[in-house]
């Protein structure tokens, strides 16, 4: 955890631009946070987060964008939606997490959980190519790319015997439509 987090806060150094940005883009008002901590109390993974949901909302208010973009919690949030449902102010924390993660990904901010990001990327690649996800080829590709060659080899054998691993990759007929969506989004980003 960053030591800076515990330094005394200088109010005249606080930047509210991130808070404004999240209000504008995501329609989420973090000012409604009462710091009750119910989000953290319900969080499935708070015990392994570097910053808990309540702190994340506070970091948004403090404009600590750098800390948020590089925090480990971005890549260990399971999106179980407990925090938003428990929040008395209905602050959509999972949406904030998605927004910041998307930003970190675009800016190429390094994460310790490279495998989580890699898996997402490979999955989206599969959808771009075929329109669907072929589970077994995706797993195999992931193990190769993450250099975990023997990962789940025994489990894979058991699943194969149960007919759970199909080697085929289904393809959407109108794949051009799906690819267009990917391309336009990529163009938009660059433009």
């Amino acid at each position: 955890m960053s030591a800076d987090f515990y330094k005394p806060m200088r109010l005249n150094e606080i930047d509210s631009s991130l808070q404004e940005e999240i209000k504008k883009v995501c329609d989420i008002n973090v000012e409604l946070c009462m710091e009750c901590g119910k989000c953290t109390g319900g969080c499935s993974n708070a015990h392994i987060f570097d910053y808990t949901p309540r702190k994340i909302v506070q970091l948004v208010k403090l404009g600590a964008e750098k800390t948020l973009l590089s925090m480990d919690a971005l890549w260990t949030c399971v999106s179980c939606q407990l925090c938003v449902d428990r929040c008395p102010s209905q602050i959509n924390i999972p949406h904030i997490m998605d927004y910041i993660r998307e930003k970190a990904h675009r800016q190429g901010v390094k994460t310790r959980r490279i495998n989580v990001e890699l898996f997402h990327d490979l999955m989206l690649n599969s959808i771009r190519k075929t329109g669907r996800v072929a589970e077994a080829p995706l797993m195999l590709n992931f193990n190769l790319r993450s250099r975990q060659y023997m990962k789940d080899a025994v489990l894979g054998g058991r699943m194969f015997l149960k007919g759970k691993l199909s080697p085929f990759s289904p393809v959407v007929k109108d794949i051009d439509h799906v690819r267009r969506l990917f391309k336009k989004i990529a163009d938009n980003r660059e433009g």
Binding site: R101, E102, H120, M123, I127, L181, F182, I185
Partner: peptide, 10 residues
Amino acid sequence: TAAHSLDHHL
């Protein structure tokens, strides 16, 4: 999970 994690529009 992959799409909503990395790209809202997608």
